[in-house]
Structures are given as structure tokens and as C-alpha cells.
């Protein structure tokens, strides 16, 4: 399995989510969001360490405003966990690695 993080766009979003063989954690982020920058390295680590059980994906909300509207994003960082194409869990705000892993654990 590839450990790489995928960057989703309005064009690729549904295809990637529906084709995924693992749960997909989608991080809605933007360059100007300080807390988003803090969780970026944490997501890199999780992506590398948990490649078999989770796919990490990112949506740049500035470039993909339609996705932000579609999912009602009003605050970032916001992370949505998709399982079998459906939203299984949603999280608003930054958190540390330990907490993020324990928030995700029930769904993996």
C-alpha cells in the first residue's frame, strides 16, 4: 500500500473516496491556517505508520471551495473520516497525535 497522502479536488473527491479500500481521513486545510500547519506533520506520520489501515487525504479549501460548501466546513482544521464512502466521524480543531489516534481508533 502506498503511504502517500493524496490531495483531493472537486474532480477527484468522489472517485477516490468511493474506490478506497481503507477508511479515508480527509483533512480540510488552508495555507493561512496556523493550527492546520501544526497538524500537518502529525498526519504525515500517521500516513507513514498506519498505511495499511488508513488513507490520509487533504482538501485545500481555498482551491476547492465547492467541497468546503458541500461538507459545511466553517472552521479548519476539520477532519472527516470516510468509511465505505460514508462519513463515519468528524472532528473540528487541532489535536495531538495521541488524541487523534484515539479518536480514530474505533473506526479503523
Amino acid at each position: 500500500m502506498s503511504a502517500s497522502i493524496v490531495h483531493l479536488t472537486e474532480g477527484s473527491f468522489d472517485e477516490v473516496i468511493n474506490a478506497a479500500d481503507r477508511p479515508v481521513l480527509v483533512d480540510f486545510w488552508a495555507d493561512w491556517c496556523g493550527p492546520c500547519r501544526q497538524i500537518a506533520p502529525i498526519l504525515d506520520e500517521i500516513s507513514a505508520e498506519k498505511a495499511d489501515s488508513i488513507q490520509i487525504a487533504k482538501v485545500d479549501v481555498e482551491a476547492n471551495g465547492g467541497l468546503a460548501i458541500r461538507f459545511g466546513v466553517k472552521s479548519i482544521p476539520m477532519m472527516l473520516l470516510f468509511k465505505d464512502g460514508e462519513i463515519a466521524h468528524s472532528m473540528i480543531g487541532a489535536r495531538n497525535k495521541e488524541q487523534l489516534l484515539s479518536d480514530l481508533a474505533p473506526y479503523l
Partner: peptide, 18 residues
């Protein structure tokens, strides 16, 4: 309502109120 229209970070969330 935190994260649903109530925000403590205008620079993070202002974008969504275009």
C-alpha cells in the same frame, strides 16, 4: 456552535463566510 459559525480564529475561519 464552536466550529459551526462560532469561531475563536478569524484568520482560520473567515474564509468560510464569503
Amino acid at each position: 456552535l464552536l466550529g459551526h459559525g462560532f469561531s475563536t480564529c478569524a484568520t482560520c475561519d473567515g474564509f468560510f463566510f464569503r
